[in-house]
Design a protein around this nucleic acid. Sequence first.
DNA 1: TATGCACCTTGTAGCAACTACAAGGTCAAG
DNA 2: CTTGACCTTGTAGTTGCTACAAGGTGCATA
Lengths: 135, 135
Amino acid sequence: MRIGELAKATGTKAETIRYYEREGILPAADRTDSNYRDYSDNHLAALTFVRRARQLGFSMAQVRELLDLSDRADKPCQEVDELVHEQLEEVEQRIVDLLSLRDELRLLLRSCQANRIDECRIVGSLARPLGRVTR
Amino acid sequence: MRIGELAKATGTKAETIRYYEREGILPAADRTDSNYRDYSDNHLAALTFVRRARQLGFSMAQVRELLDLSDRADKPCQEVDELVHEQLEEVEQRIVDLLSLRDELRLLLRSCQANRIDECRIVGSLARPLGRVTR
DNA sequence: TATGCACCTTGTAGCAACTACAAGGTCAAG
DNA sequence: CTTGACCTTGTAGTTGCTACAAGGTGCATA
């Protein structure tokens, strides 16, 4: 299959696929006589793997690790487990951070009672460091 | 005060402060005889404002808008309100996204029962598109 | 046969918001 | 008078793409 077809099949832009190849994330494809990339089903599987891992929030470096690990069929999968664990913890931390961000923004919204900007507590609140929004 | 002092006072790196100046987010400072930047309390207030807005997740473009608005003391603060609202909605969306990411990662972790990578469901799950992790 | 159009190629530059140098100037203390 | 901490400018790197530009290919249609 050509790059456009693979792109459509995986919901990836052709440019991104070429980028992955440059970065060594995907193996280079065969070429047709006219120098077009010619992909196999293995490429389709690999790209699906990569995209899914990226959607799950893994970094490119982590995806590389996952790819390396998934080639070692005989090894224990403890390392894969650890990578997923790490990622889960990061995501959980980001959630905690965003929740407190959300609370701050809600407070900020409630603090605007005035009509004019110079009386607006939002603008005033921004001029103070974080954590002292209330009063 | 010099740039290092301002940096310490606001928890910003000196390089970031110079970057803000280049970007027009902060007004240029006066210079000493030896060409060092010399900051006033107004700069301290402005930088605090900027950093706080950034910590709240506002983009540089939004910070610019907020700064412009906060200068128009006589205007109604409806626009400020709208910006905060927008940002709140974005944060809430990011939270929703991350929550479902977290669930996916948890499922993935539970799916690893095997010991060898070629029997590990995690690796297998990654090879399938999102949304079909379970079974 | 020509020509239009969708597709492909490479290479380079841009995005956000910094961060990290390098190479050199300034200033106070010892 | 030298050491060290600070400052200056300028440039390049980070992450993960995305967007061109300039040109080649392949196929259907006039």
